[in-house]
């Protein structure tokens, strides 16, 4: 059992507008799983969860060691784009998972969230759910890397992100952009799980540029 683990959460928009690219996203998840399962050190030092959201949020894969996982429920496009449901569910999951990992004897590094959406939020008040999630008063508040596609407003993606933000530049199809997103997530997990601090702790690595996306500068406070 590893001492220090880095949890990754994929929070993915499953709204109806994602229909065109959802198969590419599911294909990307299969590759991500195989890549990490074939890299035992990375699998040992990272954990991975998938939350899909549309009208509500659903945990498709609870936080897991991917070397133990043989199936991941696929993402399916349906319904609206409720950011608030996603952030509330994510906070609950992080709280539960961090507690469990600690009870199992691990020390837990700050969780990392890869958030992806292709449309504007259809719910009101999502900002307060987001604020609850990223507030320093929540001890396990995550670092969020946010990706925007198609209709989503650039400022919304910048607002969701706390670590890095990327916006599809329209130079590639949504399907290709989703494949690049999945590839970027895979690389981030593999590099973070392999780039260890002197103590052996995995260290978050996220690419500065992702093909098909423009990196958005985050506002400084």
């Amino acid at each position: 059992m590893s001492e220090q683990v880095l949890p990754f959460y994929l929070v993915c928009d499953e709204s109806g507008s994602m229909t065109a690219g959802i198969d590419d996203m599911n294909d990307g998840l299969g590759k991500l799983h195989a890549e990490i399962a074939n890299n035992p050190v990375v699998a040992d030092k990272t954990r991975f969860a998938v939350i899909g959201f549309s009208d509500d949020a659903e945990v498709l894969l609870p936080l897991s060691d991917l070397a133990d996982v043989e199936e991941i429920p696929g993402l399916t496009a349906k319904g609206g784009t409720c950011f608030g449901a996603a952030f509330k569910r994510l906070k609950q999951e992080i709280q539960k998972d961090v507690g469990q990992l600690k009870a199992d004897g691990h020390s837990v590094l700050r969780p990392v969230v890869f958030f992806l959406s292709d449309g504007q939020a259809t719910d009101r008040g999502w900002e307060s759910a987001h604020a609850d999630l990223v507030s320093p008063s929540f001890p396990a508040y995550p670092k969020i890397v946010a990706f925007g596609l198609e209709q989503v407003d650039e400022n919304t993606i910048k607002r969701v992100a706390t670590f890095k933000a990327f916006m599809a530049d329209g130079g590639v199809s949504p399907a290709v952009a989703l494949r690049e997103f999945a590839s970027s997530l895979t690389k981030s997990i593999v590099r973070s799980g392999s780039t260890l601090a002197g103590t052996g702790a995995p260290t978050l690595q996220v690419e500065d540029s992702v093909p098909g996306f423009t990196s958005l500068p985050l506002d400084q406070i």
Partner: peptide, 11 residues
């Protein structure tokens, strides 16, 4: 590294 972790069904 494959010698240093127990075998898994996914490998």
């Amino acid at each position: 590294q494959h010698l240093m972790f127990p075998p898994r069904a996914t490998r």
